[in-house]
Each structure stands twice: as C-alpha cells, then as structure tokens.
Amino acid sequence: MTDFVDAMSVATSGMKAQANRLRHVSENIANTDTPGYHRKTISFHEMVEAGTTPGAVATGRVQLDQTALPRVYDPTNPLADETGHYDGSNVNLLVEIADAREAQRSYEANLKIFDQVRQMSSALMDLLRK
C-alpha cells in the first residue's frame, strides 16, 4: 500500500508545482502591458529532504527574467523621458500562452496518474475483501 501512497504523493506534488507555475504565467499575461514589468520565471527541483517521497517535486524561487526591457516611444505617456521613450514589459504573450498550455497539460497528466492510482488501490481493497 505504501507504493500507492508514494505514487499519489508524487502526483500531488506535480499538480501543486504546475498550479504554482500557472499562477506565475497568469501574472505575466496580466502584466503584458505594464511598463517596467519583468517576466517571472519559476524552476522545479526534486525534493531530496529526509522524509519526503522520492520523485516528488517542488518549485524553486521565483526569478525575474533579466532580458532587457524594450524601449517604447510614446511621448504622451507620463512615464516617458525627455526623448519620449519609456521601458516596456519583457513579457512575450506567445511564450506565456505556450507555457500555460504546457503547465495545464502537465497538471492533467499528474491528475490522471493520481486517479489511476486511486482506482488501482480501490480495486486492490475490493480484491482483499473477497
């Protein structure tokens, strides 16, 4: 039974990590047009602490994308300098949509694993009762 619990723990950690990633992607999408906004990125790492399930993942620290901010020419913007430029956002909407789709599919894959393990453990319990 412990293998079932470990598999469910790994799938759960994957779902939590992908949900966290999706949250940051949605923040990036919401701030696509915010001047001076740096894209947030997040990394995953395997949890190797004592007492954790082997194979479980966690999210690392949130990091800001250090890509140079584009200079936008709009002399009517209150943030514009004397040349009429201001710093835009380095969020690429196409990349963020692709990241969101990947996070969603990874979440769904972990959810299917969780459901399969749950069904298998339920079937095993039914067999043991007979």
Rank of each mutant, 00 (worst) to 15 (best):
G55K: 03
K16E: 08
S89V: 10
N28T: 03
Y86R: 00
T59G: 02
V117Y: 09
A103R: 00
G88W: 04
T53G: 06
A30P: 01
A50D: 11
V57S: 05
V91L: 06
D99G: 08
S122C: 04
M125C: 11
G55W: 05
G60S: 06
Y86L: 05
H45T: 14
T59P: 00
A80F: 04
E27V: 09
V25I: 13
D87K: 10
Q104V: 07
V5W: 13
T41D: 11
E27L: 13
S13F: 02
D126E: 15
M8I: 09
L94I: 13
V72F: 08
T53V: 12
V48D: 14
N110W: 10
A17K: 00
E108P: 04
D65T: 04
E49Y: 02
N92A: 01
H85C: 03
G88S: 06
A68P: 08
D99C: 10
R71A: 12
S89I: 05
K40R: 11
T41R: 12
Q63A: 10
L93S: 11
P70H: 10
T83A: 13
M125E: 15
G14Q: 01
K16H: 09
M125W: 13
N31E: 02
M125N: 15
T53I: 08
V62E: 10
L94Q: 11
A109N: 06
N31K: 01
L127Y: 11
V117I: 15
S89G: 09
I97T: 12
L64P: 00
A100E: 02
T76G: 04
N31G: 01
Q116N: 12
P35W: 06
A17I: 02
L127T: 14
N31R: 03
S26H: 05
L64A: 10
V25W: 00
E27F: 08
K130E: 13
G88F: 03
D99F: 06
S13A: 09
I113Y: 09
R39S: 02
K130C: 04
V48R: 15
F4C: 00
N20E: 15
S89R: 06
E102K: 04
I97W: 11
Y73S: 03
S9Y: 03
L124V: 15
D87M: 12
A68H: 08
A19M: 15
Y37A: 01
